[in-house]
């Protein structure tokens, strides 16, 4: 299938701002440790020391509730205020916690701009099936209608596979994929990539799954990758060999067939390594060549920012998800 937008990299991403919040060792406060916002070709990167308590604001809500939160009321006063303050056109905010065992380590907040795509939180219901408990859809009318009535037992579809394996999963070429069960609308909406993250994993069983569905025209991120320890190194996580086991780089000019292409993007490994070693999400901005601390100019192809998020299976690091913007 040929899409004109595949020929050139999509410069604009659905995610327009990112915040990383880390819970302090006493678990009394959560501090903002990383913040990026993209405004057209401009990007701001700062690490202000703002803090919130459990339950305060969106990040505090995700910390308190221990699962992903989607804010998308329209018109939402909070969204409008936030968008005006940051100079962004936001249509939704998504926050998800990074949980190790029973301990919330961090919360990642994504500010979403208008454009075709979806963020879904699939939670276990009283039938032991996953159903949508929170969601944001844009330009996906049929997909939204049907998805609200779809249920996935353990192991079924992308959310059910994440639940069963307790690991993040990346699905590419959704509109051609019989493995993506809701592909009926993927064609019409040009949905390309689905990234599933387990949230609240305990004893190898996750409580909910956050699904990010990305389109060709305006991807969630320019690239998404899953990195995992190589076989035989699971027990020695501090000296693990991490391998890229799934990747989608459509927003960086990759072809739809690049799902498992193993080309390395400069800067990616540093971020993955830092997230793996610290056990917390790491957000960094690309800097100008020559070691300048200023963010690199957006040439439409080079990465602007990296977000690496460790994924835990109970208390052990199972994988790291890399999103490149």
């Amino acid at each position: 299938m040929t899409h004109a937008v595949q020929k050139s990299a999509a410069t604009s991403t659905l995610v327009q701002c990112i915040e990383v919040w880390d819970v302090d060792p006493q678990a009394s406060l959560m501090r903002l440790t990383g913040h990026v916002r993209f405004r057209g070709n401009l990007m701001d990167f700062e690490t202000p020391g703002r803090s919130v308590r459990s339950g305060e604001g969106l990040a505090g809500m995700a910390w308190h509730q221990r699962h992903a939160v989607v804010l998308q009321e329209s018109p939402s006063e909070l969204l409008q205020q936030l968008g005006t303050r940051k100079g962004l056109d936001l249509s939704a905010l998504v926050a998800f916690p990074v949980i190790r065992g029973h301990e919330v380590l961090s919360v990642v907040v994504l500010g979403i701009s208008p454009g075709p795509g979806a963020f879904e939180v699939w939670s276990r219901d009283d039938r032991d099936e996953l159903s949508i408990s929170a969601s944001y859809y844009s330009g996906l009318k049929s997909f939204e209608l049907i998805s609200r009535h779809v249920r996935f037992p353990k192991g079924a579809g992308l959310p059910g596979t994440v639940w069963k394996t307790g690991r993040s999963q990346l699905a590419c070429n959704l509109n051609h994929s019989p493995g993506f069960m809701r592909s009926f609308a993927a064609d019409e909406t040009e949905l390309n990539t689905g990234l599933g993250l387990p949230v609240g994993s305990s004893a190898g069983n996750c409580d909910s799954v956050l699904l990010m569905l990305s389109s060709y025209a305006k991807p969630v991120a320019r690239a998404m990758e899953i990195w995992q320890p190589g076989t035989g190194h699971h027990s020695s996580v501090d000296s693990a060999v991490l391998c890229c086991t799934a990747a989608d780089r459509i927003g960086l000019g990759g072809s739809p067939d690049s799902c498992l292409a193993m080309s390395c993007i400069p800067g990616a490994k540093d971020v993955i390594s830092a997230a793996w070693d610290s056990g917390r999400p790491i957000l960094t901005a690309s800097t100008e060549p020559g070691g300048s601390s200023r963010p690199a100019a957006d040439d439409g192809v080079s990465p602007r920012a990296f977000l690496a998020v460790p994924v835990y299976r109970s208390t052990e690091r199972a994988a790291a998800v890399l999103m490149i913007f």
Binding site: S239, V241, C243, A274
Partner: peptide
């Protein structure tokens, strides 16, 4: 492989060129 849900746990990272060794912090 690209036309199905990629089962990350079934991938064979050993054979991949895109590997990274982390040893301690950073």
């Amino acid at each position: 492989p690209d036309a199905t849900v990629v089962p990350a746990e079934n991938a064979t990272p050993e054979g991949s060129a895109n590997t990274l060794q982390t040893a301690g912090a950073g």
